[in-house]
Amino acid sequence: MKRLFTILGLPLVLLACGGGEDRTIIQNTGSDTLLSVAQGWAEAYAMVEPTVAIAVSGGGSGTGISSMINGTVDIANASRGMRESEFEAARAQGLDPQEHIVGYDALAIFLHPDNPLTSISLEQLVGIYGENGTIESWAQLGIEVPGCGSDEIVRVSRQNNSGTYAYFREAVLGESEFKLGSRDMHGSKDVVDLVENTPCAIGYSGLAYATDHISMPCVSAGEGTPCVAPSVDTAIDGSYTIARPLFMYTAMPPEGGVKQYMDWILSDEGQCIIFDKGYAPVATVTCA
């Protein structure tokens, strides 16, 4: 029996020691919205600082934040701000969580390419998605969608602990809750896939997930206000109403390798990577 454990244990020990001597490993987990950016940063940073390895994974903002509180990751990615309850949980562990805004994301409304709707107001979105909303059919928006015989609006949403879901509730629904019965997809990519294939559907997610096979209406804050199309530029200048900050959280004020990494992310080089991925940088940068 003892020998068995030795055999099983040895590779694990070797694995644990192998990278330890000359490489620092930074664990980075969280938001699926930020996942592709975080991976882009990690890859580029491997060239800048070969002695540091960044291990990136997704799972959602909630996962990232709770892992950071539990001490299993160094940096949590989040597409929503940390809640007061989460701050309290962190302080109870003796932590002092630090918030870093690393970019901005326009939350786009997605429609099937055959859908003729070109503009939508926040009020209409509340009518569609909100708990007491009465908009159930496309005819109520004054349009007819080809291929959608039943005329029913198929609401596509996200699972209830995603940062995108939480931000949409806060920024669009305000005081209201989500109407039950939406198709709650597990990831922004699934939202886009379903909307692409479903003429009756409406969905929402980060602009960076948009494809050529999807249509995005402009969004107006209310009657009389201009309808603004979602884009990186309108997210930067603040004219697009449902643009949100993207966060990275550290359990303590960053120091050492983590501080260097955070500083590099906010440098022009790091900010050009987030721009390339379809998100807005924190400040205007000129990229090659």
Partner: peptide, 29 residues
């Protein structure tokens, strides 16, 4: 994966198991 009491076979629904799978990973202990 939609919270809905089905009235026809074409309604979307959500299962108990699927709810645990979709939500447990992101929930604070």
């Amino acid at each position: 994966h939609a919270i809905n009491i089905p009235t026809s076979p074409f309604d979307s629904v959500r299962a108990l198991t699927a709810t645990i799978a979709a939500e447990l990973g992101d929930t604070a202990r």
